[in-house]
Amino acid sequence: MNGLTWKYALHRIGIYLLTILISITLIFVISRAVPGDPIENMWRQLEMQKGQIEGVDLIIDHYKELFGLNEPIGIQYLKYLWNTVRFEFGVSFVHYPTSVSSMIGHALPWTLGLGLITTLIIFIFGNGIGAVFGWERTPKFIKTIIPSSLIFTSIPSVLAALFLLSIFSKNLGWFPLAGAYNSNVTQGWNWPYIASVIKYGFLPVLSILLVNIGWTILGMRAMVVTIGGADYVRLAQAKGLKPFYILKKYTVRNALLPQLTSLALSLGGLISGQVLVESIFSYPGMGMLIFRAIREQDFNVIQATSYMFILITATSVLLIDLLYPLIDPRITHGED
């Protein structure tokens, strides 16, 4: 029973760093494997949309030089690694001279807001509902609701978004079609702005929520049913403890451990699910940013946003791994 040990912690941190290195290397390779030169594509596309640009070859060469795209690929990779670890993402190719950091700075709060609220709701309500559904004393009429929680789990969040947009925005007009807040309110810590943000974020949150909450409910329900038959729960019942007390202190507490792991792992899925949802609602978050960057072959933005996603997911998993032995003393990763 050693709990968290240095050896275990260093091992997990090593895996964490290796995961990040492999991931960012893959992103570098994949973004450059797409056919075409991003600068040439951008200017040729501009020329096709806006008419002939005289001296376009000169401009293309200038920007390639400026962005270091004329350097050998190995040098580009080493510079990319060095810049990435220092969070120096450079400037956007397409939105030059805007820095990638400022683009992320604008987008990240919206995505974090959306993602954290969704994750919290899914975790709290999903596990709460799952526990209720799995508890043997829950009235049967409530248990019959279980299948309805699964309606949206098998469809992508993008379809759920289109469905909700169609019903609640286009047909009923209850929610706005696009955006993050009403332009008539002043940005800041005031109620009209907060209410506007909640209203504009409601459908995007709901789109992600409906698709993801079912799995949390099912997982929690299964854990509660399993743990409900464990010896220590039977012993508690034999001791005459109140059933709800047993649910709260014995069943749910133990059932939450695997849910915590899935919470960390689901963060990556939640964020990737957000990419298309944000683009459908024109929500100005990281999803929109990466969606557009991929279309525009904006290497620096693709690399930076993907790095942020990887970092968030990998760090969450690392934290859970490190916290596990502390949450559950039965779990040991050290030497006996």
Binding site: I142, G173, W174, F175, N182, N184, A195, F202
Partner: peptide, 23 residues
């Protein structure tokens, strides 16, 4: 617990006018 969830949902959906309506 269920009632609380319903209230939460109602509160969230209470802002039921379109942005342009608001404008």
């Amino acid at each position: 617990l269920i009632a609380l969830m319903m209230i939460f949902a109602i509160v969230l959906s209470s802002c039921n006018t379109s942005p342009t309506d608001e404008v």
